[in-house]
């Protein structure tokens, strides 16, 4: 068992734990904080996957921007701790648990199937990251330079559209939350 494996297990259990806490806590603020923790764990997982760039933007964008937005909105609402956090209905709740469980199982099963299929068809895939690191998985191949090269050549169109999206969204958000007369108007 190499260090990377241990790291993986710690990080993954942290992310799962915090993710579960997001769902189970009754206070929304605590939920958001647990979500931050979960996202940091996921960033660590990205690191183990030899994707530092992705880990970086995960922290910057998700934990640093999106969740800050969440927290701000929650503070705006100023909600009390809920007595009952979960929706009514035992039968429907049970059905939801069963459905989610089935989903999880099927995804996992599908994952195992597809992985064994991939393994069967290709010889050069490393079976674990430790072996991958040994076989000369050069970190430079995963650098920002390579990513941006792809981004600006093969996925240029999508990239531009994404820019457009990023233009439209703030406009939309402002339009949705406008108040007639501006923020200093008297209602």
């Amino acid at each position: 068992m190499s260090e990377l494996d241990i790291l993986f297990y710690i990080l993954s259990s942290m992310s799962v734990l915090f993710g579960a806490l997001v769902v189970l806590t009754s206070s929304p603020i605590y939920s958001s904080l647990y979500l931050v923790m979960s996202m940091l764990s996921v960033a660590g997982i990205f690191m183990t996957l030899n994707a530092p760039f992705i880990a970086g933007i995960q922290i910057i964008v998700y934990a640093g921007a999106v969740l800050v937005l969440f927290v701000m909105v929650l503070m705006l609402f100023d909600l009390k701790r809920e007595t009952k956090a979960f929706t009514k209905g035992r039968f429907s709740g049970f059905l939801k648990l069963v459905g989610a469980g089935l989903l999880c199982g099927f995804i996992a099963g599908a994952a195992y199937e597809s992985v064994s299929l991939i393994m069967a068809t290709s010889e050069e895939i490393p079976t674990n990251i430790a072996a991958a690191a040994e076989t000369g998985f050069s970190p430079t191949t995963n650098s920002i330079k390579e990513i941006s090269k792809l981004l600006f050549t093969k996925y240029l169109f999508a990239f531009e559209v994404l820019g457009l999206l990023l233009l439209v969204v703030p406009i939309g958000a402002v339009a949705l939350s406008r108040v007639a007369g501006g923020t200093h108007a008297k209602h």
Binding site: S12, V16, G19, V23, A100, L103, C104, I107, A108, A111
Partner: peptide, 10 residues
């Protein structure tokens, strides 16, 4: 992938 499935389910 199993981790991903778990997080997704949660």
């Amino acid at each position: 992938l199993v981790l991903s499935a778990l997080l997704f389910t949660i």
